[in-house]
Amino acid sequence: MIEFNGVTKSFGKRTILDSVSLKVEEKQILAILGPSGIGKTTVLRMAAGTVKPDAGQVRSDRQRIGFIFQEPRLLPWRTALGNVTLVLQGRGLTRDEQVGRAGAILKRLGLQGFEHYYPAHLSGGMRQRVAIARAFVLDPDLALLDEPFTGLDIGLKLSLQQMLLELLAWHPCAMIYVTHEPQDAVLLADRAIVLEGKPGKIMASMDFDRPRGERDQSYIQEQAAKLTAVLTAKKSPVGG
């Protein structure tokens, strides 16, 4: 689906990422962890094609991308519904079909009755849900999620994660998921990588073999503990 091959990226004189290689298969979910400012968002932007690597290649055969940015990035002058239909524009859908699809996904995310609210009149968590709806309304084959649940209360976070799992069951797709929480990574991902160092390199990578549906609390705890150990210990780079 998408593949990074020895990707290096600098902003100005500062090298942010150094020969990062990774691969995400169709319907596979990759979690990226690492300290703030290491270049996680930059990886997602390169996957989306809005940032070009300085060296190495980013190859992908994605058709439609769904991106949940670190901030909601909604158009303030469009309602929740308007923000979701925005990305359905120019895809050969009638106005009614657009509204139907947008309304359905908003409803799935518990925003029924709020379709005609402007972002400024929604709560932070609701805005985030609109952003999720926008990312998934066009049946993406690659979803890029940048810390989508940071700064939300634990209850909302859990329910949004549940919704995300439902959305994925409803419409599976390849996904790169940036997070700071080892638990989140284990809950969702097939594989996790840890970025570390100056410049950022892939320091560790972990596979979660058990199918997503069968991961119980103990499995998650156990794997998350392993991942935490990796995150806190300083290791030497592994080959990508």
Binding site: R45, A48, G49, T50, R64, I65, G66, F67, F69, E71, R73, L75, L86, V87, Q89, G90, R134, L138
Partner: peptide, 11 residues
């Protein structure tokens, strides 16, 4: 940020 969003979603 909004502009990047528009580009990513190929609006």
């Amino acid at each position: 940020g909004l502009l990047e969003m528009l580009r990513v979603f190929r609006v």
